[in-house]
Design a protein around this nucleic acid. Structure first.
Length: 698
DNA sequence: AAAAAAT
């Protein structure tokens, strides 16, 4: 009792003073002791809960993140032990390491330890970053992840591989983890340290150095590759008809439901609430419902031949920068939307990411800012005047890589505002003053609520993947953000809203009716997935043979992206592939941001052949030369199918999309294909079948 | 139901 009491007394003293400061301190202090012992752990926990509630009351953020499972809080409470441990991570991890097998269960508590956990589950990846911060020893860590596994052909230890890295990483922490496999970890280090080291160190650098380059590629590849010729050829022939077909079908599928939002979508009358509610209720049926495409003015390559960016109204500096980036002449979507944006109109644009869409809004946006920016350009602490929102961090980054050089060419600054990274840098940038914000809704809203981000001077707002932004969970934040932007420019014109997506349909109706004014609608003929150079296949596979078939499919030499429905499955598949000697990595929301960035880079740089991802990678992500897209789980809807499959067959190259379905899902996938207007062979397949080997060889 | 997005 004695030793403990000392500490407890100290704390009790503090509590008494803070809590009430009553003169009865002594006796209450005494009582306080006893209470303190058992309650002390809980004390902190309660405090946290109070603090959270307080923050929520201030409107800062919800007590529970909206992506968190409902029972998250409860679980946490149940685990009293963890709740108060929060700050003491070492012990925790330690415990968890023991629980490794249960990792999935850990998720309830996710919110507060995300970073911590990532390591747990995906050992290799997470730790690397930590070490980086701490030590020179980094390299080893990093290597552990991707490279390592491949190196280890010895599979017997398979499971060892999974864990070895973790423990191994933390040799320092040996006491915590060391238990099982200290023996092996060291070995590997010794053997491979040199190699990995090299790789690891360089990998990061490359990212930094090449960001611009890659960026260029992203933009250029599509442009250059998708020559005017190509586009024209398929655009005209194939698509025009298709689009019309779709319009016809929409009604068929969803009868009256679809009609409401569609019809209203571009009426100026505002019935935002009703629209929204209606759409929420009726848009998300169990089946893949196809909404009417928006009435659009189609632009084809012939329309833009011989036109230059300058002709469209883009200034010399920006035009030169575009040329340096590889955009020497405008693509159709750009030719269609740039004049309207410059004219101050609201615009809806349909065009695949990476095919010129970013510049279609980026270039005129910068031009517009110059126009009504005036002398305030350089002012410290100036509020941003343009906002670009994207549904994922990776996409926001990719957009910024395109827009930033355009902005800089005329002395404007951009900054990225997205989650998963420290606030300091972002807040610092805002304090210094920026002109264009590129980000994701969560962090933008967060900084808005903290008073760090003032959107009241934003006169141009862009929603990329706008239809996706209307998905459950995105619509509300987006509405709040848009509501915080300016209604009119300093010159008294209406502030602009621009919505872009490869699958822009009536799902955006509520946003359109609430925020847009007489928008002009454009699309590029031939820009959707159905165009193309992509061979679509469906393999009907027995559930228990699925993983084996997948492994055979991804064993080929070409770059492959595998889509899985859940994070856990994505991670498991990546592990399985690595265990099989295939260079693979994963991309999903359970990884911390540095890991996400790095793993994506592993694929773009070719250090791995296979990326297993959730739908976080379905939209907008451009990786050169992906020859095969495998859908380990069927997509939710036809739009997901189109976006996922659009990761391949880019740049006019050949691509193959293989969708694995169990027998029971055949009808579902057929419906999706029909809506996507894609024809695909559907065959049964089992491990070792010729068809599997043939597809893998591509 | 899951995914994404804020700590």
């Amino acid at each position: 009792m004695a030793p403990y009491d000392k500490g407890a007394r100290q704390r009790a003293d503090d509590r008494v003073r803070h809590a009430n400061g009553t003169p009865a301190a002594r006796s209450s202090k005494h009582r306080g002791y006893r209470a303190a012992d058992p309650s002390q752990p809980r004390q902190k926990q309660r405090w946290d809960a109070d603090a959270r509630r307080g923050r929520e009351a201030q409107g800062e953020r919800p007590a529970r993140p909206n992506w968190e499972p409902r029972d998250g809080g409860q679980r946490r409470d149940d685990r009293g032990g963890r709740g108060f441990d929060r700050n003491e991570r070492a012990p925790r991890r330690f415990e968890r390491d023991d629980r490794a097998p249960r990792r999935d269960d850990d998720r309830g508590g996710r919110r507060f330890d995300r970073d911590d956990r990532a390591p747990r589950r995906f050992d290799r990846d997470d730790r690397a970053p930590r070490r980086d911060d701490d030590r020179g020893g980094r390299r080893f860590d990093r290597d552990d992840r991707a490279p390592r596994r491949f190196d280890r052909d010895e599979r017997a230890p398979r499971r060892d591989d999974e864990r070895a890295p973790r423990r191994f990483d933390r040799d320092d922490r040996a006491p915590r983890r060391s238990f099982d496999r200290d023996d092996r970890a060291p070995r590997r280090d010794d053997d491979r340290a040199p190699r990995r080291f090299d790789r690891d160190d360089r990998a990061p650098r490359r990212d930094d150095d090449r960001a611009p380059r890659r960026f260029d590629r992203d933009d250029r590849a599509p442009r250059r590759d998708q020559d005017d010729r190509q586009r024209r050829s398929f655009d005209r022939d194939d698509r025009a008809p298709r689009r019309f077909d779709r319009d016809d079908r929409a009604p068929r599928r969803s009868s009256d439901r679809d009609d409401r939002p569609q019809r209203r979508s571009f009426d100026e009358d505002r019935a935002p609430r009703r629209d929204r509610d209606d759409s929420r209720g009726s848009y998300v049926p169990a089946d893949d419902v196809k909404l009417e495409k928006l009435q659009a003015e189609a632009t084809v390559a012939a329309d833009v031949e011989g036109v230059s960016f300058t002709d469209l109204g883009i200034g010399g500096n920006i035009s030169r920068t575009l040329a340096e980036m590889g955009a020497t002449s405008p693509f159709p979507i750009q030719a269609a939307t740039i004049p309207d944006v410059l004219a101050g109109k609201d615009v809806l644009g349909r065009g695949r990411t990476g095919s010129g869409k970013t510049i279609a809004f980026g270039a005129p946006l910068v031009e517009k800012l110059m126009e009504h920016g005036g002398g305030t350009k350089r002012k410290m602490g100036r509020a941003p005047r343009a906002l670009i929102l994207a549904p994922t961090r990776e996409l926001a980054l990719q957009i910024d890589r395109t827009v930033q050089p355009i902005a800089r060419s005329v002395g404007l600054f951009t900054t990225q505002i997205y989650g998963g990274v420290p606030y300091g840098r972002q807040e610092g940038a805002l304090e210094r003053g920026v002109d264009i914000i590129v980000g994701t809704p969560g962090r933008v809203q967060d900084l808005m609520n903290k008073g760090k981000l003032d959107l009241s001077e934003v006169v141009v707002s862009v929603l990329d993947e706008a239809d996706h932004m209307c998905d459950l969970g995105f619509l509300e934040p987006v509405r709040e953000i848009l509501s915080a932007t300016a209604e009119v420019t300093p010159q008294g014109n209406r502030a602009q809203k621009l919505l872009f997506s490869a699958t822009l349909d009536a799902q955006v109706a509520s946003l359109v009716s609430e925020f847009l004014h007489e928008p002009s609608v454009h699309e590029v003929a031939g820009e959707d997935q159905a165009s193309s150079t992509i061979d679509h296949r469906v393999l009907v596979v027995e559930q228990r043979q699925k993983d084996q078939v997948l492994e055979e499919l991804v064993a080929g030499d070409g770059k492959t992206i595998v889509f899985a429905r859940t994070r856990a499955y994505a991670e498991r598949l990546a592990d399985q592939f690595e265990d099989a000697g295939i260079r693979a990595t994963s991309l999903h929301g359970d990884l911390n941001q540095s890991r996400r960035t790095r793993n994506l880079q592993l694929l773009t740089s070719g250090r791995v052949n296979v990326l297993v991802a959730t739908d976080v990678a379905a939209r907008g992500i451009h990786v050169d030369d992906v020859s095969l897209v495998v859908q380990a789980d069927a997509p939710d809807d036809y739009k997901a199918y189109m976006h996922r499959s659009g990761r391949t067959g880019r740049a006019g190259k050949e691509g193959t999309v293989v969708t694995i379905v169990p027998r029971g899902r055949i009808r579902k996938i057929e419906g999706i294909l029909e809506n996507a207007e894609i024809e695909a062979d559907l065959v049964q397949a089992a491990p070792g079948d010729g068809i599997v080997a043939e597809l893998a060889a591509r």
